[in-house]
């Protein structure tokens, strides 16, 4: 038996007046499980444990959570990467968003900021009978941008997003904003930039790069935000 001590944030709005941490002992049988596997074992012990999950391979973005103080996806985070020296695992919901229950957060404001940047291609010319052509070089500009899975690990690790979630778009939304600004097929650059010029939407980014540190897909929102600033400058001077 190799027991792992797991401490999980619990809150059920129907029965709990305040959240609390609950301790579980999980037998890992010495295997280097993913954190999601540990949660599945816990759910067999206590069926009331609530968390989101879907693809279990790091592409759907359902199971973003805070593991020993750092945001990430439970399904692709191995215990060996995350368990501390005392052999303990602490699981909390993503910080800064309202908790619905246990590890499930209300992602409404996160999605609202995503919708705000108009995350779809806009092109005012009539489409050709085949595809719009795009050179491999132009297509390469989208690499590192389109792969975002909307897991919210980055935005909920960002103090600027914690303080102003209604006004600061946040790293995830801005990464997607730049994904369309950078697309050679998109013709709405001017309108997109005009919408981002205010002191909050982009400029609350202080470049501390928490987003880059936690992104489970290895993307770099800080760099994308820098590129948006460059475009704003080029557009306005």
């Amino acid at each position: 038996m190799s027991m792992l001590q797991v401490s999980v944030y619990r809150y059920n709005p129907e029965t709990d007046s305040a959240p609390y941490m609950q301790e579980f002992q999980v037998d890992t049988q010495g295997r280097d499980l993913m954190v999601l596997n540990v949660l599945e074992i816990i759910k067999q012990q206590d069926s009331s444990m609530a968390y989101r999950r879907s693809c279990r391979e790091g592409v759907c973005g359902s199971d973003g959570m805070n593991m020993n103080g750092s945001n990430g996806l439970a399904c692709v985070t191995a215990l060996s990467e995350v368990v501390d020296k005392r052999g303990k695992l602490v699981l909390r919901p993503l910080p800064g968003l309202p908790v619905v229950r246990d590890l499930v957060v209300d992602m409404g404001i996160f999605y609202k900021q995503y919708e705000r940047i108009q995350p779809y291609l806009q092109n005012d010319t009539p489409p050709p009978a085949i595809e719009r052509l795009q050179s491999p070089e132009d297509r390469e500009k989208l690499d590192g941008l389109y792969e975002c899975i909307l897991c919210a690990c980055c935005s909920t690790a960002c103090p600027s997003f914690w303080w102003n979630p209604e006004k600061f778009v946040g790293p995830a939304g801005l990464l997607q904003s730049y994904r369309f600004l950078a697309d050679s097929r998109d013709t709405a650059t001017r309108e997109r930039l005009a919408d981002l010029e205010d002191p909050f939407s982009v400029f609350r980014c202080r470049g501390i790069m928490n987003c880059v540190a936690v992104c489970p897909k290895g993307l770099n929102p800080t760099r994308a935000i820098g590129k948006i600033r460059e475009l704003l400058m080029a557009n306005a001077t």
Binding site: Y120, N123, P127, I130, E131, R132, S135, P136, R139, D183
Partner: peptide, 20 residues
Amino acid sequence: AVFELEHMGLPFSRFDNGRI
């Protein structure tokens, strides 16, 4: 249907001539 997806913005990989 595939061309529609491309027009909607799907970021297909490309050949040197710019096609999908």
